[in-house]
């Protein structure tokens, strides 16, 4: 209890700072990942000449360990491309890279899963391919894939703990730092684990509730 009071409670501001960094990095990484993933998926599906490069990109993202990507982006990219110049940017970029590969495949499954009849109905009304995609395919793909997309976000939150190794001051980083200073790993790491469980558990339930409500609104079966 002493440790609890003297270390955890006294350093709650550090945990809060770490949590804020974790939040930022996850949100930025996920947005970038969605954009990259959707782009890669669309190229793979619809731009025939670029199908191979898109596939290589997706497979690369999915089949490289996140740890390797993190170090690669952090240490190799600045030399090759002159960017990123901060650990923070390297952190979200690496996370985005990994997630984009998985999201690209998720989007593809969603797009290919849309009933062909729905597309033919759109075509028969004279809708252009772009309009069909925007009005008919994408909304349905997102709706059907919502659970997988949200799951990918939770994976990303958990992977984000690794950015602590390149000195991004996220929640995990603060926990490691406090442990190094006070040498009370049981309390500190247990509390950190508890925070992550809380975040991931709450998010996953909130997402599920939201997705089910959305599907319920359309009268569709629960995912």
């Amino acid at each position: 209890m002493d440790v609890w009071r003297s270390i955890i409670l006294k350093n709650l501001n550090l945990f809060a700072e770490g949590l804020w960094v974790t939040t930022q990095i996850c949100v930025i990484a996920f947005c970038v990942a969605c954009a990259l993933g959707l782009g890669a998926c669309l190229v793979r599906l619809y731009v025939r000449p670029l199908r191979l490069p898109a596939t290589i990109y997706i497979e690369f993202c999915r089949n490289t360990p996140i740890y390797v990507q993190l170090l690669w982006v952090n240490y190799v990219w600045p030399d090759l491309f002159g960017w990123p110049q901060s650990f923070f940017a390297a952190g979200w970029m690496a996370l985005a890279l990994q997630s984009s590969g998985y999201l690209a495949e998720t989007f593809r499954a969603g797009i290919e899963g849309v009933d062909r009849g729905h597309l033919q109905a759109a075509h028969s009304l004279g809708m252009s391919p772009f309009l069909t995609f925007r009005s008919i395919i994408l909304p349905q793909a997102l709706l059907n894939m919502a659970p997988s997309i949200m799951n990918q976000f939770l994976v990303l939150v958990k992977s984000s703990t690794l950015v602590s190794v390149i000195a991004v001051p996220d929640l995990m980083y603060q926990a490691m730092r406090l442990t190094a200073i006070w040498f009370q790993p049981i309390e500190i790491l247990s509390f950190t684990a508890f925070l992550y469980i809380l975040i991931v558990f709450c998010l996953s339930h909130a997402f599920k509730l939201y997705a089910d409500r959305l599907r319920g609104r359309y009268g569709l079966a629960m995912a």
């Binding site: 028969s124 009304l125 004279g126």
Partner: peptide
Amino acid sequence: INRLRQDVGMVFQQFNLWPH
């Protein structure tokens, strides 16, 4: 083709209404 398709209504066996 799309311009002409606008003038030809089509009703499908499976209805094909957009569920969303």
